[in-house]
Simulated scan of single mutants.
Amino acid sequence: MKKELRQKKILNLISKKNIATQLELIDALAEIGIKTTQATLSRDIKELHLVKKTDITGEVAYRVLNAEEQVEYNSGPVRDIFKESVNGITQVQFINIIQTDPNDGSRVAAVIDDAEIDGVKGTLAGYDTLVVFSADAEAAEALHQKLKSFLE
């Protein structure tokens, strides 16, 4: 089955009933004739930005984050690693240069890449420094302000 169709079915299922575990989701998919593996389902969950949330009755279930929640969800790990490993940020035209603790340059870059933050076109990391490329100086300035906020 094509990924797009399977993911549409997943979204349809979680919108109609509370599904709290991957096993429950695999079983629900099987009931409608879709067989999948746990590994494939895990990738789908990540790509669809599904999270487990508690509703007002206290029941936990998968749901899709809205755009505002997605930004906060994605920036959580960035904020954590910035507080732990980043020593400073400097903007030079369309580039942000980030100084980290020794051995942390690549780790910080990987977290930034995974977070899919607006304004990040790519990263290049070394031992204790990484550069974050933006499309232009204006985008880099907006990114600079956002990255600095993670240090607060």
Rank of each mutant, 00 (worst) to 15 (best):
K83Q: 04
I89Q: 01
A39K: 15
D55Q: 02
I112Y: 09
A61H: 07
I112F: 07
S42Q: 05
I117A: 01
R6K: 12
F150E: 10
D27H: 11
A20I: 10
L23C: 04
F150I: 11
A135G: 14
K17N: 01
G33K: 09
M1R: 09
L41S: 14
L29D: 06
D113P: 02
A28I: 08
N18P: 03
P102G: 06
A30W: 00
K52M: 10
A109V: 04
L151M: 15
E59S: 12
D44G: 05
M1H: 11
E116F: 07
A140I: 07
I14C: 08
T54C: 02
Q22F: 14
I81F: 04
A67T: 15
G58W: 02
E116K: 13
E152G: 15
A109Y: 05
N18H: 04
D128R: 12
I14D: 09
I95Q: 07
K46F: 01
P77N: 01
N18C: 03
L124R: 04
I14N: 06
A109H: 03
N74K: 06
E4H: 12
A125D: 06
D136M: 04
M1P: 11
N87H: 15
L151H: 14
T129K: 08
I56A: 05
G76T: 12
K16C: 02
E4F: 08
D114F: 06
R79C: 11
I10W: 05
V120N: 06
T21H: 02
L124V: 01
E72Y: 14
K2M: 10
G119Q: 10
D113C: 03
K8F: 14
G105H: 08
V120D: 04
F94K: 14
T54F: 02
N74F: 04
L65G: 02
R79K: 15
E68V: 13
L130K: 03
I117S: 01
L130W: 05
G76P: 04
Y62P: 11
D104L: 13
A142K: 15
I19R: 11
L124S: 01
A139H: 05
T37M: 00
E116M: 07
